[in-house]
Each structure stands twice: as C-alpha cells, then as structure tokens.
Amino acid sequence: MKGEIGAKLRDGETKQNAAKIDAETFIVSTNRQGEGKKEEVRVNTEVKIFQNQREAEVVEATTVLAKKKAGWSQTARLAEVEAEKAVAIREAELQMEVEKKKAFVETAKLKAELLTKATVEYDIKVQEANSELYKRQKEAEAALFESQKKAEAQRANADAELYARQQAANSELYAKQKEAEGVATIGKAQAIYLGSILKELNHNYPALRDYLMINNGIYQEIANTNAQAVQGMQPKISIWSGSNSTESNGGEGGSGLKDVAGLYRMLPPLLETVHEQTGMQPPAWLATLPDHK
C-alpha cells in the first residue's frame, strides 16, 4: 500500500515537474519567438527607413539635377539674349554717335552763320549806341551848364535876399531894443511916481491901491457895467459936484496928497450913486454907507 502511494507520489511529482518544465519551455519558447519577431520587425523597419532615405536622396538628387539643368538652360538663353541686346545697343550707340556728329557739324555751321550775322549787327548797334551816347552826353553837358548858371543866379538872389532880411532883422531888433528901453524908462518913471505917491501916503499900501483903482477908472467901469445891467429900470439919479476938490488945501502935505484928498472927496457920492442904482455896497475896507430908511 505504501509502495503504491509512494509510486503515485513520485509519478505525480514527475508529471508536475514535467508540466512545469513544459510550461517554462513554452514561456521561454514564446519569449524567444516574440524577441525574434521584434528583431525581425526592427530590422524590417530599419530596412524600410533606409530604403525611404535612399529614395529621398535619389529624388533630391534628381531635383537638384533638374534645377541645375534649368539654370544652365536659362543662363544659356540669357547669354544669347544679352548677346543679341548688346549687339542692338552697340548699333544704337554707333547710330547715336553718327547723329551727334551730324548735329555737331550742323550746329557749328549754323553758329558760324549766326555769329557772323550777330557780329555785323552788334557792330552796327555799337556804332549807333556810341552816336546816341555822344549826343546824350552833349545834351547832358548843356543841361548841366544851364543848371549851374541857374544855381549861381539863385544863389546870388538868395544871398541878396538873406542880406536884405538880415538888414531888416537888424533894424527890427534895433527898434525893439529902443522900444524896450522906452518901456524900461516908462517903468522906471512909473516906479518913481508910485514911490513918491506911496511916500506922500506915509507908505499906506491900501490907500495907494484905492488911488490907483480910482485913477484908472475901475470904479467908473463898475458903475457903467451895473448901469447897463439895470438899464430901463428907472433908477434914481443923484447929482453931485466935486467942486470942493479944487479948493486950496495947503495943510494936506503937497500936491500929491492934495490929489488923493480930492479923489477921496469924490468917492462918497460916487459910491452912494452906485448903491442907489445897483444896490451894491462898497467893500468894507473902502467905505461904509449909512443906512437909508
């Protein structure tokens, strides 16, 4: 019994080991096959890539060759065209040179003809201009001589007129000087006269002022002006006489004081008349009229 079990155990272990070995072998075989396929695919890929690269290089080389052929053809054609155009340009340049030579010859000929004609005309015009210039110079010299003579005559007239004006001015200045001397003499005389009156009035300046106003007719002018203002108003008429002013008064201090005294005698009735006719009172410094009721 134990022998059978042991045999079965060994047989089972053998089968298990065999199965295990088969599995491992299958795995290893499969791995080997996968690696082989991978290597095959890699090799095929590299071969394909190499083939594509070679084909691209061939295409590129073919394209470059075609471009070079086209460039060579274009260069050859351009060379032919340039050669043709160069020939045409050279022909045109030569034709232009010929035309220039012809034009130069024609121009030189025309210039010679025109220059000869212009020279003749210029000589004629120069002669005419010289003749006209000489004529104008003579006319200008004659006009200048006449102007100089007129200027000399005007200068002489101006000198004579200036001398006459100077003489008239000197005469007028002399007359003004004499007139000024006369005015100065009159002023001095008036100053002496006023000084003597002021001395007779014992240097009473208000009395001197009154005397001058009366003597110069200031009050009479005031009375006339006021009378004209009230003309047609039937004013009162006062008649007075200054006969007493002519009486001899030896005690009043000489002839100058006598005249002043006479004027003062005439003053009251004059001021009263002015007051009656115009209603104006005399200034307080001069006199005071009595009240009329």
Rank of each mutant, 00 (worst) to 15 (best):
A223K: 05
R209M: 12
Q127C: 11
E132N: 13
S243N: 12
E181F: 10
Y211D: 02
K38F: 03
N249L: 04
G3E: 13
L115I: 11
A261R: 10
N249P: 02
M96H: 07
L263V: 00
V126M: 13
T62P: 01
A70E: 11
K176N: 14
G187S: 13
K38Y: 04
R42K: 09
K100Q: 07
A112R: 13
T116S: 12
E46W: 02
V260W: 02
W72E: 12
A23I: 09
L114I: 08
A184T: 12
G242Q: 05
E272K: 05
L208P: 03
A61E: 12
G254Y: 09
S238I: 15
Y219L: 12
V28E: 13
R136N: 13
E128N: 08
Y211S: 02
E272A: 05
K15W: 00
Y134H: 15
V105I: 15
L115Q: 15
T185K: 10
W72P: 00
V183A: 15
A23D: 11
Y211G: 00
G251F: 08
E84Y: 04
R10V: 01
M233I: 08
V47D: 00
T63P: 03
A92G: 04
G232K: 10
K178W: 01
G253C: 06
N226A: 10
K37S: 01
I124S: 01
Q231M: 04
L94D: 06
V43Q: 06
I218R: 04
G217N: 07
L65M: 04
E99C: 00
A284Q: 05
S29F: 08
V98P: 00
R54Y: 01
K69R: 14
T45H: 02
K48H: 09
T185M: 09
S29E: 11
L110K: 14
K135Y: 04
R10F: 00
T116V: 15
G182R: 14
E97I: 00
E99F: 03
K150C: 06
N216S: 09
A184H: 13
A70S: 04
T75I: 10
L144M: 08
V126Y: 08
G250W: 10
E272Y: 07
G217S: 06
A88P: 00
D291H: 13
K135P: 01
T119K: 10
V230K: 09
E139C: 04
W240N: 12
K37Q: 06
A118I: 05
I237C: 06
T25Q: 13
L65R: 02
Y205D: 03
S245V: 01
K258L: 02
K150E: 10
K2H: 09
Y122I: 05
E152Y: 07
R155E: 00
A7F: 11
D159P: 00
L133T: 13
D291G: 10
V41H: 00
G232W: 07
L286G: 03
A223E: 08
Y211I: 02
A261L: 02
A86V: 06
G217P: 06
I237D: 07
V274Y: 02
G262D: 03
P206W: 04
P269H: 08
A156P: 01
E46P: 01
I5F: 15
S196T: 08
K293F: 09
G253R: 06
I89H: 04
A261P: 03
R77I: 02
